[in-house]
Amino acid sequence: MIIAERKDLGLISKMLEGRSKVLVAGCRSCVAICHAGGEKEVAATAEALRLRAAAEGRHIDVTEMTLERQCEKEWVQEMGPHLQDREIVLSLACGVGAQVVQEMYPATLVVPGLNTSNMGAPEEQGIYLEKCAGCGDCVLHLTGGICPLARCSKSMLNGPCGGSQNGKCEVNPDTACAWDLIFHSLQRLGRLDLLEENIPPKNWLPSRSGGPRRIVRPPVVQGEEEKRSREGSP
């Protein structure tokens, strides 16, 4: 899932400056699970904005809505009627959701209420850990199910650097050294042989280095006719 954190309220207020009709829009997917932009956080943020405005003697009219998913047009359509009198949307979705909303409603300014951080998983209640770098060329089969690209501070592909100590990364004593985890995972799996092989320089083309990525899955792509009939137009 996508892990995000809410921006500081002061920063959010700054982005909203000069606008009094605000829609705070949340998302029930990833950002709800990581307690950054679900229904509860939408309510809390809206209330905080109202209180702040009241304290500063400003008038603000904040409405709230939370979509099932802000990254899919089908769900974002539901936002239309709620936008009628709104001057600005504060999106509490990830950066993907915020962009889809802006794309669908180009006449209304959409600003990000969250900082989208990474692709990760909840470690325990309230603690989230980055797991995947989205490099486009997965190597987990070589590394005991632990991604060195996302989880090693230096994205090393051929083993630990000289700073790994007691299972911790040299960069931060709170961070596990990915290569220590990889070593022990492969040891348990009886596959330490994998660590003897040199992995050549990575092809970063499937990653961001090939420019923004566009993935096309031909069997699912709809033809023009199919699109028309689905939309119900002649």
């Binding site: 230096k154 090393m156 592909l157 700073g163 992995i199 320089p201 990575k202």
Partner: peptide, 28 residues
Amino acid sequence: LSGDHQTFGNQKEARNVYDIDPVQQLMV
């Protein structure tokens, strides 16, 4: 060398590269 991580130095906000690691650097 892999190099000391940038957060140790005086350019903490720098973006690191790590396109290749030292083993790959030797191969190249």
